[in-house]
Amino acid sequence: MTIRVLLADDQKLVRAAFAMLIGTAQGMEVVGQAGTGREAVRLAVEAAPDVVVMDIRMPDLDGIEATRRIAAQPALGGVRVLVLTTYDTDEHIADALRAGASGFLEKDTRPAELLDAIRVVAAGDALLSPAATARLIGSFLRGAAPPAAHGEGPACLSAREREVLALVAHGLSNAEIARALGLSPLTAKSHVSRIMGKLGARDRAQLVVTAYESGLVRPGEGG
């Protein structure tokens, strides 16, 4: 299956470079390019990409707000957003993930890492650098006011599901969760999918944020 990518960056040269890179990658194609956040939202609706590569700093509408608007549209439930930033700070990362981004990457990353990141986000089964991301989110959320909760939060989960959620927050993949709990990979995957449904989460990124905000996992634990 070909991964359909929308590029959102206010710099034409950056978009052109990314487009050339993605265009030569096997199993990927660029379906649109946006120079503003508002244009990114419009093109996401029109092109229905699998992944939006979104810069944070853009005119008209910044990348975080554009991500929030994309994530808020039910028709775009399958669209994943990969945020690119030259400002690799806790606050930017937490804001982006809260807005609905599935991962983040520094803008000066190596070409191969960008392509790998797009594949990871498109698959929807792992965060980028999950353990490091979990620690970073936890560090910021420790002193931040929580946003509106999804559903009932972890309180609506069974004891096993809370255990699985904690392992997701520590950056474990489905296969690693299965090994840690003595489950089959299919059972671990089913648990994660059920947790997403109960919490109204789009992907694992939001599960990590929920785990930290609820206090189920605390900064510095595990990982």
Rank of each mutant, 00 (worst) to 15 (best):
I3S: 00
L6F: 07
D10F: 05
K12W: 10
K12C: 01
L13G: 11
R15Q: 09
A16R: 14
A16E: 15
I22D: 05
G23T: 02
G23P: 08
G23N: 03
Q26G: 14
G27D: 03
V31D: 05
V31G: 01
V31F: 00
A40S: 14
L43W: 05
A44N: 04
A48P: 12
A48Y: 12
A48L: 15
D50E: 02
V52N: 11
M54E: 03
D55I: 03
I56N: 03
I56R: 03
R57N: 04
P59C: 05
D60Y: 12
R69G: 01
I70Y: 02
A72C: 14
Q73S: 13
P74W: 02
A75T: 15
V79S: 02
R80Q: 15
V83C: 07
T85D: 09
D88M: 07
D88L: 11
T89L: 00
I93S: 10
R98A: 07
A99T: 03
L105N: 06
E106D: 05
T109I: 11
P111N: 09
A112G: 01
L115Y: 09
A117T: 04
A117K: 10
L128F: 08
S129E: 09
S129F: 00
A132N: 05
R135I: 01
I137C: 06
G138Q: 12
L141M: 11
L141C: 08
A145M: 00
P146L: 08
P147L: 05
A149D: 00
G151K: 09
G151D: 10
E152I: 02
E152H: 12
P154M: 08
E161Q: 15
R162F: 07
L165K: 04
H170L: 10
A175S: 07
E176T: 08
A178H: 05
A180K: 11
K189S: 15
K189H: 15
S190I: 13
S190Q: 15
H191F: 04
V192G: 10
M196Q: 13
R202F: 04
Q206A: 12
V208Y: 01
V217D: 12
